[in-house]
Amino acid sequence: MNEPLLQVRGLTVSYGGGSVAVDQVDLDVHDGEVCLVLGANGAGKTSLLRGIGGFAASERGRVRSGKVLIGGADVTGRPPRTMVGHGVVLVPEENKVFRTLTVGENLRAAPMTGDRGSRRELLDEVVSLFPFIRERMDLPAGQLSGGERQLLGIARALLLKPRLLMVDEASLGLSPIAVRKVFDSLHSLVAAKGMTLLIVEQNVRAARAIADRAHVMVSGTFALSGPAREVLESEQVRRTYLGLEV
């Protein structure tokens, strides 16, 4: 196989020098692949995505050791904006949109690259993926429903032309119908654009349809990794995620 788009080696993430949230994790994501990370609350899933996508100077978290490579380039510990420049874009778990900005302003805030024509084209393409945006252009994003905010966050990320799109808990707090909508959109991104995805998701039923590979995270490490079908069919995952808890 070709070199993976994302290579993570021995990644260790800690907060304020103290607690280790991600402990020596290895992870490969290939071009066009959809990679799913599962795990209980506090397992370190968000910290893993943040360790890859970078912490801002104002945050307590940092990459303590290990390496993150994108297309072979070492980008370990770079701030989020630099990672965006490398094509790694995160739709974070909380605060996915600028609430005080309108929907249209949320999109305009994204620093798009390319000439005027191609920017226009990409914007039209993204808006046609999420038609609700057109009707809500002048509404403050804080007034959108949870599902719409999630989709607007994804739309904003797409304007940055990600090579690797990371989505942290897309279904969190959404109604079943909204979850469907969000995952239908992710599905069509993968099908139509061959988008490479790294997603954290608790809703196994929703993620099952699109995931190629899956990792189960427990206390900062991967307890189980493999092809999504196998991992999701495994006794451990069925019991925990498809049994009592879901």
Partner: peptide
């Protein structure tokens, strides 16, 4: 607009590619 975005949430702004 980017200044307002960064004022509301500087981490999200940075994640959104804005030069905070």
């Amino acid at each position: 607009i980017r200044m307002r975005a960064a004022a509301e949430n500087s981490v999200l702004a940075s994640q959104g590619g804005i030069a905070v």
